[in-house]
Design a protein around this nucleic acid. Structure first.
Length: 441
RNA sequence: GCCCCCAUCGUCUAGAGGCCUAGGACGCAGGGUUCUCAUCCCUGUAACACGGGUUCGAAUCCCGUUGGGGGUGCCA
């Protein structure tokens, strides 16, 4: 029988990183076995399940490339079917009405636990057992007539033909009940796999307050979907050897549930950033360029009269230097505007010195008449100047870099100079000299 | 309280009795390359929670303790 997995989030407006990893594992497992990956929106909480909240789920999934094989199922449309199975349970004495703990109007319907221990095999944690005395009967239909999660979840999984339920291990206790429900309904019990949680820096479960844990946040922070995907797969699973940066196809080929760890994992942003950097460096040049262009557009920095060749050259200087795509606009403003900021520390270290300003004056004079003004000629001129004045190249290079870019680091100085062109370079040197000559004491 | 799950470097992990004086990756530190930063290369740093067993031999098996987490809803 073909394997069918599902991702069954309740749309609450945000998609949590732990949920998304569950989605990824479901997706990978289905792909690995040539099965189907389904989506069901558990949208029975009408107050929170707004169209926007549902869209957030779809956005997160499509951003990460988790395409489903069938149309999404909306749990809220399946109440009739769910209640139908309850009648069946009632008729067979496997459920009963009760007003225990009633919230007013009418009776709830309670599922009768079988009175014996329940054991199921978890693909990750092994055999799990719970004794009869530790399990009470539980409500499956509220007194207002609506089905409870347990019933809806199980009934829908049966209807959708789900063969493998891969979900967070906060569901383990529920699973005992669900197994009983499957049996009562004469349905085949699916295979279960319970994933450990992803915890925050304090080792606690992520809460609403932890901010950083929503899929959309990672996108906004300049993470690449493939990098986040790769990182998340590795959070709780490994291929068994030292490989870490793996393509999606490789992951599909390697992924098995028995290699999933059963202990919680803590998110490490630093490692995610490193991996994101790996993916940025591996991007085809034009893909990277378009990503950078989008950043510019999003920040209102893009101008349609931008010279394409110029833009292309700037971008190519940055590819090895970014950990997040969003950094592009931060570290390259001086290429696109004369309004770039001066980094205070860089200024203090490189410009607030009489020698530095004197050096800039010499350089400015040299560059003003340099013809042609190229990477090579600019370097040659600077080195000649350094030799004449008995200083080392660094004493010219560093102040020049800060004057030109406002930053202490960045691409090679001469590449920058040639790209910016003589006119802008000389202007910037003038402005820096003007601005810092008095503070340089 | 009761039930359940979990426990290797700071973090993610490899390890399914001898291959482990515990391997890799991120991070961090130092070095090399370079005009800087990043990339790249090299080196270093750091862990089997604790206590009992079992065994010729345990990170690996068993028991206990401690610690963390989950559940204990007419939430999902």
């Amino acid at each position: 029988m073909a394997i069918r997995t599902r991702f069954a989030p309740s749309p609450t407006g945000n998609v949590h990183i732990g949920n998304m990893r569950a989605a990824i594992y479901n997706w990978l497992y289905a792909r690995h076995h040539g099965g189907e990956f389904l989506v069901r929106l558990e949208d029975t909480d009408r107050a929170r399940s707004t169209p926007e909240a549902i869209q957030t789920v779809f956005d997160a999934m499509s951003w990460l490339g988790l395409e489903a094989d069938e149309e999404p199922v909306y749990q809220s449309t399946r109440q009739d079917a769910q209640l139908e199975t309850v009648r069946n349970l009632l008729e067979r004495g496997l459920a009963y009405e009760s007003d225990k703990g009633s919230e007013g109007q009418g009776n709830a319907i309670v599922f009768r636990m079988p009175g014996e221990a329940i054991t199921f095999h978890d693909e990750i944690k092994g055999d799990l057992t719970k004794s009869a005395e530790d399990m009470k009967d539980f409500v499956i239909v509220r007194s207002n007539g609506t089905p409870v999660f347990h019933l809806a979840n199980v009934q829908d999984d049966i209807a959708m033909g789900v063969t493998h339920v891969i979900r967070g291990d906060d569901h383990i206790e529920n699973t005992y009940r669900h197994v009983a429900l499957y049996r009562a309904l004469d349905a085949e019990v699916p295979r279960f796999a319970h994933l450990p949680m992803i915890v925050n820096r304090q080792g606690k479960p992520y809460s609403k307050r932890d901010g950083d844990a929503f899929v959309g946040d990672f996108r906004d922070q300049g993470m690449l979907p493939d990098a986040l995907f790769n990182y998340l797969v590795l959070l709780g699973w490994s291929p068994g050897d030292d490989r870490e940066v793996l393509t999606r196809d490789e992951l599909i080929g390697l992924f098995t549930l028995d290699r999933v760890k059963s202990s919680p994992a803590q998110m490490d942003i630093k490692k995610l950033e490193w991996m994101n950097g790996e993916y940025i460096r591996a991007m085809p040049e034009n893909t990277f360029r378009e990503a950078c262009r989008k950043q510019m557009v999003d920040h209102g920095l893009w101008r349609d009269d931008m010279d394409e060749t110029y833009f292309r050259q700037v971008v190519s200087l940055m590819q090895a230097r970014l950990k997040r795509i969003s950094e592009f606009v931060e570290v390259s403003t001086y290429f696109f505007s004369e309004e770039y900021d001066f980094d205070e520390k860089a200024v203090r270290k490189r410009l607030n010195k009489p020698d530095a300003i004197d050096g800039l004056r010499l350089l400015r004079e040299g560059y003003a008449t340099l013809e042609p003004f190229t990477e090579e000629s600019a370097e040659e001129a600077l080195r000649a100047l350094a030799e004449e004045s008995g200083g080392n190249t660094g004493s010219f290079v560093h102040p020049a870099r800060v004057a030109i870019s406002g930053l202490a680091g960045g691409p090679g100085l001469f590449e920058m100079l040639a790209l910016l062109g003589r006119e802008r370079v000389v202007q910037r040197l003038d402005r820096a000299i003007e601005r810092y000559r008095d503070t340089s004491s």
